[in-house]
Design a protein around this nucleic acid. Sequence first.
RNA 1: GGGCCUAUGGCGCAGCAUGGAUAGCGUGUUGGACUUCUAAUCCAAAAGUCAAGGGAUCGAAGCCCUUUGGGCCCA
Length: 628
Amino acid sequence: MTFKSIIDEIENNLNKILSDLSISSIEFSVEPAKPGFGDVSSNISYLLAKQLQKSPKEIAEILSEKYSKCTNTLVLKSEAHPSGYLNFFANWEKLSQLILSESYLDTCGDVDIGNGSTIVVEHTSVNPNKALHIGHIRNIIIGDTVSRILEKANYTVNVLNYIDDSGLQVADIIVGFKHFGYAEEPPNGKKFDHYCGDDVYVKTTEKYDTDPSLEEIRKNILKELEDGDSEIAKFADKITRKVLAGQLETCWNLGVTYDCLNFESQIIRSGLWSEIFEKLKEMKLVEFENEGKNGGCWVIRGEGKEEDKVIVRSNGTATYIAKDIPYAAWKLGLLEDPFNYEKYEKEQPHSRVLWQTTLKESDKISKNFTGEKVVTVIDSRQARLQKIITSLMGKFKSVPNAYNHLGYESVTLSSETAKTLGLDTDGKQAQMSGRKGLYVSADSVYEILKEKTSEETKNRHPEMDDSEIETIAHLVSVGTLRYEMIKQDLDKIITFDLTKSLSLEGDTSPYIQYTHARASRILEKSDRTPTIDVDFSLLKDKSELDLIRNIGLFNLQVRDAASNLSPKVIARYCYDLAVAFNSFYEKSKVLGLGDVELENSRLCLVNSFKIVLEKSLDLLGIKAPDRM
RNA sequence: GGGCCUAUGGCGCAGCAUGGAUAGCGUGUUGGACUUCUAAUCCAAAAGUCAAGGGAUCGAAGCCCUUUGGGCCCA
């Protein structure tokens, strides 16, 4: 058990006291205390003030008095603070032993929220016509981090990447290839996804402004894409898969992996739409509009003052929400699975098998990538559409909150960075746009970071060989990128600045990784293996206890992060843990003390810190090197 | 016209879900600490009417209402 043990003990005792006083049970808080107010505090006195007609201070004194008579194993004493809070002081010798022993177990930090049930996390889902930019990376890292956290919270997670291979954006590059003669092979070894995005896509769409006839050409291509057997569709399939391969390479490099790729073109051809459309009609969730501006259309009624949403136009074509509805229902396992599955042609890192949907009958492998619940990571510009889908799915599936839209604000470019890309924004931040070529690619940010970090590492360790420097620079760059994408709240806009985001000091991943290197170094230099069989009473300095306390909070943080789908909780936790360690590192020496007992106790603590930091960083997809 | 998000030291953020103690952190500024397990570190100082106004409450950065600035979506 962990820090939660002492919280539970206090909660139980307080409830006992309440029932002894024949006070009906109330919802009071028992939380880790703020610094300077003991170890655990409760607001219970405030909540009883009215009922008992006494001041919180008096109540706290009464409760504290009663508490001293309770059976305690982890609490040393309670104290009534003049403010009215009831504060508790831990028996650290026992609590340290509990927390540090727990940290040595494989199950450390595990919590059970999912109860082993399946959950789908869909993220990435970028049109396969361009390279990933820094805005996409926010989506990908949020999705990947959330799936790691959910797994830790005992969900069986299926990670999906939806490949929109039949939309307008794909049509645009096909126009480029077929009508402007762009070569199929990129010049001078450029990565294919970059080539399609930077050259074919941007330069083709530029021409729409001057040549209106292109619209017609694109329309025809779009139509041909729907028929899987057409030459255009086959060509598009070849191109988009090459782009996808490039995108996946970027993701894998950042430590992001998937379970299955779902192709939109196959969803369209699978007939899922007509199945769900019949169901919608049956359940009267869509209605045919006879008159008005939506006359001849099938619509979903808007709630309250909201507009009706057209899903089938009067000419019979489905709007793009019509692709999302069957897919959402499929993810929840509400439809019979029309797909077969085959392994993706390239092997994914970390030996996680990557599958992809196929309509080919020859591969009769059936798999199940659906979930009891679904989390769809899409930026909050799509909130309206996602709200409709959430509400529809609520009517299809009895499990409450089965479909979840995890929204987040977008990444914009700072005016300085926009300027370097040739756009003067008059001091304002700029929205990224793949179409206008206004973006910073993920690969380029990674490369710049890597260059800077290897430079830094080389300066620090002239003795290191190139491959070691390369490894460290890679881990630090990935960590930096991932941490920057996750550390703030989902509904805050990230203004990306090419220069400022390269900071490696303060509240950053390198700071956290550096503390790991410090801990590793101590363990490496010690001639003993750390064990849990030590004298815990020797760990009594404030910085030691604070570090132990932080270690003990791990599973509480995982619970918080998982139940709120809030990855930043873990980012903050890693940072707090690192701060606590650095403070310990400054104040308490471990090696060469001449006191074997004390040294053993501190070694145990350092090792415990290292284990828990690694586990919590792992939830962020960040690995920490042993030296840096 | 309708809807969503946001506002906290110069700058970037945490805290808000579940109201309660002294509003935390990074960065920047000023000063200090490497003969001592790695200074990508640590310590200290200055810097805040928590956008504005009102309301309910014994008590509000947090809850309710109104207004304003910024961003986005739909029409």
